[in-house]
Nucleic acid binder design. Structure first.
Lengths: 306, 306
DNA sequence: AGATTGTATTGCTTTTCTCAATAATGGTGG
DNA sequence: CCACCATTATTGAGAAAAGCAATACAATCT
């Protein structure tokens, strides 16, 4: 094992003392400048001498003059102190205006439609040189957050509840969408309408399970006519059929607006969820990450995007 | 006075810890490598975190991963540690064979004749690229030794007894020189011869006072025919006149050999003196100075040069 | 030689450091 | 989903070290 002693390296305070002595040539003066008593400095000097194996400074009528060794060490000592200061220097501020950083955000499909446009607009405004990459949320999102591959995850991602920082943005309830000219539906969508009509199911997204749970609770068996892996093309299908779909309010209102669809509040009581911002503790203090989080929060926190 | 706190700079051991964590990603492992207990390292890490205002390393399944701040500090930290090692690095050895250093030695006039040739020969042999400058001993020799303007003082220099390091080389007694064909002197130089003959006085050199003191002690008044400021030309004068001179043995034998003069032991009991090597404490540890001292000592210590 | 300035040493108090034991935390496997 | 495992953080106590006031010591200047 031979657990050997570590090489003894100089202290920052000893380096400072060395340089003060080198410039000032006085122990007493150095003591004042360091805010210590003179005996203390004398002891520090003794430590310096023992550590460097040289008297370093000798008394003369002109003060404490450096030995050749001290003369030779003045440069390296200055450099070392400077290097130490470098390490302790305050973190350079993050400046969105000039950063060329590439930000990466994990989102659900739904968020691509609802949140991304506003995020991108704000980002291009505040950080015109920055780049944005959007990554689909998946089973390895946690890992990506931890490794720094992505900066944030945005949406309803229950598996990121534990072990990650999170910030609640807004609550979501559920709505239903149907053709504005639906042959059978009136001003209200009733529970019996809901049970009778043909449905489109969106498998993507974690909210899927919430719907299933509500269906069981209401003992409803939907007539599933079409299952889609995402929201792409959903608007076109709805506006040309009599099918209905159940989805979170934010994407519902967006699609209704884009495709001229009819929005109903959901007759079945589907449990709402919270859209959150997730990040890993590793990047909790990172200025760029903090800034991005702040931007998202300022856009969405408290109020639904629609 | 508002004696403000000094900026807290990192310790060498904290730097080492930082780098070990950065590479190893484990507090426990770092503790082993640093030869400390794990709790101690945990506390050190806490100090690092407080000092740098960042968690620096966060727990993950892959160990303690660095935050962006830690990532950014790894380089500077390495540099700082390297700079500290530089300061504590052992002094580079002095290599006489390759040095181009200019050595400067203060000598008495006498030593120019007696010691310098052998010093120069040895120096050119051991340090062929070095330069030698000889400076006459004077009232400011002490200052020159202190300031580093000269490396050594060599000879009988009572004013350098206090406050300087010194090394005794050899003892000197006094001799008299006269023309080998002197009209009145025989095999021995008696005290009455000494009192009767005409003398040459050498004012240079501190030994002058010793002669005066001896003259008073013996109640002799010399007939001073010629006073010279140094030894230059002395041989020529002695070999062409009937004058006698009193001087230290080493220069006496040298001049006698060079000029074919007759050497007498001095009939008057002049107090001997010690030829010493003098240097200032400031250069006591300087390898070059030490080497030069050692060279002089090896040449002259213990035995007179003649 | 005495006075003065400046550095080193001493004795003591306060602070800091370190470790063993233990708690807390996050990840993992049954 | 809970219990276990590995690892980090915290606590308390004993030991070591730092810092200061007083003082001794050394060199210089008047």
């Amino acid at each position: 094992m031979a657990e050997d002693e570590v090489e003894p390296l100089l202290d920052a305070k000893l380096l400072r003392l060395f340089l003060l002595l080198y410039q000032g040539g006085s122990v007493t003066r150095a003591a004042e400048q360091l805010g210590q008593s003179q005996p203390t400095i004398s002891i520090w000097l003794g430590r310096l001498r023992r550590s460097l194996n040289d008297p370093l400074f000798v008394r003369t009528a002109e003060g404490m003059l450096p030995t050749p060794r001290a003369e030779a060490l003045a440069g390296p000592a200055r450099a070392a102190l400077e290097a130490l200061r470098q390490v302790s220097a305050p973190e350079p501020a993050f400046t969105p205006g000039t950063t060329r950083r590439q930000f990466r955000i994990c989102m659900t499909d739904a968020s691509h439609i609802t949140l991304l446009p506003r995020i991108l607009a704000k980002l291009r405004d505040a950080a015109p040189l920055a780049q944005l990459e959007v990554v689909r949320i998946g089973p390895d999102t946690g890992h990506r957050l931890q490794s720094g591959e992505v900066d944030l995850a945005l949406g309803f991602v229950p598996e990121l509840e534990a072990g990650f920082y999170q910030l609640a943005l807004y609550e979501q309830d559920w709505v239903c969408l149907a053709n504005r000219d639906h042959p059978r539906l009136g001003a209200e969508l009733t529970l019996s309408d809901f049970a009778a009509e043909g449905h489109i199911g969106i498998v993507s997204g974690t909210g899927h399970a919430l719907q299933e749970e509500a269906l069981q609770r209401h003992r409803i068996t939907r007539r599933m006519v079409l299952e889609l892996p995402g929201f792409l093309g959903l608007g076109a299908i709805l506006s040309t059929t009599d099918l209905i779909v159940t989805l979170p309010r934010h994407i519902g209102t967006t699609l209704a607006g884009l495709n001229g669809l009819r929005l109903y509040s959901c007759p079945m009581n589907v449990t709402g969820f919270t859209v959150k911002l997730h990040w890993h503790s590793r990047y909790h203090q990172d200025p760029a990450n903090r800034w991005l989080r702040g931007m998202c929060a300022s856009l969405f926190q408290g109020r639904s995007p629609n």
